Simulated assay, not measured.
Amino acid sequence: MDIATMSIGMHQALLQNEVSISVAKLAMNSNAQTSENQIDDIMNSNNMAIDASRGNNIDVRV
């Protein structure tokens, strides 16, 4: 194997590794943002009006 072929192969492997790392970072950032949005939604839903009488009565017929 000549040096040029080996050099190209090494650079392709390095590029593939860098792309994989970049995609993983994007996925991690996306997951972090989604988690933050879900936490914000949960925290803001506590301010909603809740009907306290719902769920207290159950109709049972056989």
Rank of each mutant, 00 (worst) to 15 (best):
52 A>H: 07
12 Q>T: 12
52 A>G: 04
33 Q>T: 03
58 I>K: 02
59 D>C: 03
9 G>K: 10
6 M>V: 15
52 A>P: 04
38 Q>S: 07
45 S>F: 04
37 N>P: 00
35 S>C: 04
58 I>E: 01
57 N>W: 01
4 A>W: 09
38 Q>D: 08
9 G>P: 01
51 D>G: 06
51 D>M: 05
60 V>N: 01
17 N>C: 11
38 Q>G: 02
29 N>Q: 04
30 S>D: 00
49 A>S: 12
13 A>V: 06
36 E>I: 02
2 D>G: 15
15 L>M: 09
18 E>K: 14
47 N>A: 09
30 S>H: 00
17 N>R: 14
10 M>S: 08
59 D>N: 06
15 L>I: 10
50 I>G: 01
38 Q>C: 02
49 A>D: 10
56 N>L: 12
8 I>A: 13
1 M>Y: 07
57 N>K: 11
18 E>L: 15
20 S>Q: 10
27 A>I: 07
49 A>C: 03
34 T>Q: 07
2 D>N: 15
15 L>D: 08
4 A>V: 14
2 D>A: 06
13 A>W: 10
52 A>F: 07
8 I>Q: 14
34 T>A: 13
9 G>V: 05
50 I>C: 03
3 I>N: 14
25 K>W: 02
43 M>N: 13
19 V>L: 15
47 N>E: 09
36 E>T: 02
51 D>V: 12
10 M>I: 13
49 A>K: 09
60 V>F: 01
56 N>C: 02
56 N>Y: 04
59 D>F: 01
8 I>N: 12
14 L>Q: 14
16 Q>F: 08
14 L>Y: 12
20 S>R: 11
6 M>F: 15
1 M>P: 02
39 I>L: 14
22 S>L: 14
24 A>L: 07
16 Q>I: 07
7 S>V: 12
44 N>M: 09
53 S>E: 13
26 L>K: 03
55 G>S: 05
9 G>T: 06
22 S>R: 08
48 M>V: 11
39 I>E: 10
61 R>D: 01
37 N>Y: 02
34 T>H: 02
24 A>K: 05
29 N>G: 00
30 S>Y: 00
24 A>F: 00
11 H>N: 10
14 L>I: 11
42 I>K: 05
33 Q>V: 01
43 M>R: 09
38 Q>A: 09
19 V>C: 03
21 I>S: 13
1 M>W: 08
20 S>D: 13
20 S>T: 10
14 L>N: 08
6 M>T: 14
40 D>S: 09
33 Q>F: 01
45 S>Q: 05
17 N>M: 10
15 L>N: 09
55 G>E: 03
19 V>T: 11
43 M>E: 13
25 K>V: 09
41 D>N: 08
22 S>C: 07
34 T>I: 05
1 M>G: 15
31 N>L: 12
12 Q>M: 15
11 H>I: 12
29 N>W: 01
12 Q>N: 12
62 V>W: 03
49 A>I: 05
39 I>H: 04
22 S>Q: 11
27 A>G: 08
2 D>Q: 06
4 A>D: 12
50 I>W: 05
52 A>V: 13
50 I>H: 03
34 T>N: 04
